[in-house]
Design a protein around this nucleic acid. Structure first.
Length: 394
RNA sequence: UGGCCCGUCGUCCAACGGCAGGACUCUGGCUUUUGGUGCCAGCUAUCGGGGUUCGAAUCCCUGCGGGCCAG
């Protein structure tokens, strides 16, 4: 046993591929004391790996699973911020590593995080976009940081606690992301910007497990973070969104709330407080709920409409990062997620100049906001993803 | 200041003289590595004063406040 690859049955979408994961990651194995005993006495047959540890339960359990699979695991906590929360996260990760008996290192990534994630986030709001910082963070900050750490630590692979799977397609040799088996926790969307190089070295121990199993395993192992709640909200904003944005120079000006016909319905205190598709917080009583359908940055107008107006029929993407396929040569069918937790919707991908893609939805979908990512799927395979630049509703 | 309508949650609208209900807003919760959506729950009202009645949002009188025809 020298490579951690597992062949899986061919699916309709993929003629064949191999999962880059763990040899014993199957759900049925969670109590498999037998196989566990078999691997623990071996001398790291799977090699040395740098595991990104956030301090949460997912990465903690990932460490244990990697160890079971025969990896020589080094816990790496990237410090994206210099504050108490980061101290706390790092301390939790260190405690887990200590308990598991593996080394733990911290890595300072504050400058890179600021440059690649935080500033672009604020800039997006100035432009009237609704950014999705985690997508960019994974590709431009988290993975690069981990890979650098791996280099320094002599690791040939890296791992994270994302719920998704990675495969290598036999036909083309390309690496692709698959959805997690636990569809409720699937995070493949968040990995859609990863490059081939990043994917080729990434191992995702949790792709074949469920959150429930992870919690159970964490408890069985006595991990101190077993009960830690799910992360949510933007990690670098603790507290008031508005305050954060204003500290970042995002000036917010009041403006009118109008409907599609131009009728004035009310006032708002700043466009950055709204995202397209949003329902709550508009503050206008009407026969039906209003949704934000447009933000007019120049005139500071917020355009609202009923649910029937808050539908997208097509979106235009900037440069798309292709994963399972090399490029798009002509129109092709796929499914697309227009927001992280939305259901993939049937669509046609049409190539546009400079790597862009026009996405024509087979049927109208609840609208989405420029700045969000559209991620293409074929079955459970991620084809690629790109940032939404324009949403068409007619 | 002649005649006629109408005053009910924050908003819009219901309720044969018999427990004031809904929608929207708002608030809280669930869900969630993007304040989105969605789901669940909750708060809040009969314009004031008299009367009739066992009982009034409802009927009568009156005041106040809107609106519409008149001039």
């Amino acid at each position: 046993m020298e490579m951690p690859f597992v062949a899986i049955a061919a699916t309709k979408e993929m003629r064949s591929c191999r999962i880059l994961g763990l040899t014993n990651e199957n759900a049925s194995d969670k109590t498999g004391a037998g196989s566990e005993a078999r691997v623990t006495h071996q001398k790291h047959p799977a090699g040395r790996i740098a595991l990104g540890m956030s301090g949460g339960v997912d990465s903690a359990v990932s460490a244990a699973l990697l160890m079971r699979a025969g990896y020589d695991v080094v816990g790496v906590t990237c410090r994206f911020q210099d504050n108490a929360a980061a101290d706390c996260a790092a301390a939790d990760a260190a405690a887990v590593c200590a308990l598991l008996g593996i080394p733990h290192v911290e890595r300072l990534c504050v400058a890179g995080f600021e440059r690649e994630v935080v500033q672009p986030f604020a800039t997006a709001y100035v432009q009237g976009l609704t950014p999705s910082p985690c997508v960019g963070c994974n590709a431009c900050c988290k993975l690069p940081g981990l890979l650098e750490a791996a280099e320094e630590l002599g690791c040939d692979r890296v791992a994270t606690g994302h719920y998704a799977r990675i495969v290598q397609l036999v036909d083309t040799g390309r690496f692709a992301v698959l959805t997690a088996l636990d569809v409720r926790k699937d995070q493949s969307y968040m990995l859609s910007l990863l490059s081939q190089d990043q994917l080729s070295r990434l191992v995702l121990p949790l792709g074949g497990t469920t959150k429930t199993e992870v919690r159970i395993l964490a408890a069985d192992l006595g991990l101190p973070v077993a009960e830690k709640p799910e992360s949510q909200d933007v990690c670098f904003i603790d507290g008031d969104y508005r305050t954060f944005l204003s500290q970042r120079g995002v000036t917010d000006e009041p403006g009118l709330i109008v409907d599609r016909t131009g009728k004035v319905l009310g006032h708002h205190e700043g466009l950055s407080g709204f995202t397209i598709g949003q329902r709550k917080g508009i503050g206008i009583a009407a026969p039906e709920p209003y949704y934000v359908v447009e933000k007019r940055v120049d005139s500071h107008e917020l355009v609202v409409g009923y649910a029937s107006d808050a539908q997208a029929v097509s979106v235009r993407l900037g440069k798309v990062n292709w994963q399972a396929i090399t490029c798009l040569e002509g129109p092709e069918d796929a499914s697309v997620k227009l927001r992280y937790r939305s259901t993939p919707a049937p669509c046609i991908m049409e190539p546009e100049p400079e790597g862009g893609v026009r996405v024509v939805l087979r049927s109208p979908q609840p609208t989405t906001a420029p700045g969000q990512f559209a991620v293409f799927y074929r079955g459970s395979t991620v084809l690629g993803g790109g940032m939404i630049e324009e949403v068409s509703s007619v």
